[in-house]
């Protein structure tokens, strides 16, 4: 039952919602209800900031079923600023030089697309942090 499985996970996937251990304070992702550090129950939801950096990465040229549409694509281990290491795709990186330690931020994108008759699965990916502060008055002349 893929629909039910994706539905159960969508809250975590859409917004990077994990858990926090009320005993030792460790932030947990993905949610597992038990703290991996102190084994105490940990069921309090925690929404991560989505900020992190690339810990390691690789490019997928031979994708599994459901991901063919996006290949080649980059997968990475992202170290979130709150601590957990998350496996996810990098997106918006064509033409970018990807490096270990590169700052990234979470975005919600299409994860897989099961054809024109199936559902679309959305979830977290990471992209290079967008630089803010662009000059708002710079306008090109009309063509």
């Amino acid at each position: 039952m893929e629909i039910a499985r994706h539905w159960r996970l969508q809250r975590h996937r859409y917004s990077l919602v994990g858990e926090v251990c009320n005993h030792c304070g460790v932030k947990i992702f993905p949610a597992r209800d038990v703290c991996p550090e102190c084994n105490a129950p940990a069921k309090t939801p925690y929404t991560f900031s989505g900020k992190g950096e690339v810990y390691s990465y690789s490019t997928v040229h031979h994708p599994p079923e459901g991901f063919e549409h996006f290949a080649p694509y980059v997968v990475a281990l992202v170290r979130l600023v709150e601590g957990p290491l998350v496996a996810a795709q990098l997106t918006d990186v064509e033409g970018e030089k990807i490096e270990i330690g590169m700052p990234v931020e979470m975005v919600t994108r299409k994860l897989r697309d099961d054809g024109s008759k199936g559902t679309i699965v959305y979830g977290y990916k990471f992209r290079p942090v967008i630089a803010g502060g662009a000059a708002v008055v710079a306008k090109d002349a009309a063509v």
Partner: peptide, 23 residues
């Protein structure tokens, strides 16, 4: 001939109105 505008934005392979609306 000269196009009516300079350029247009195109969504990524993993973008649609849902993901764009969300951001």
């Amino acid at each position: 001939c000269t196009p009516p505008i300079k350029e247009k934005a195109v969504p990524g392979l993993d973008e649609d109105v849902a993901t764009m609306s969300l951001e």
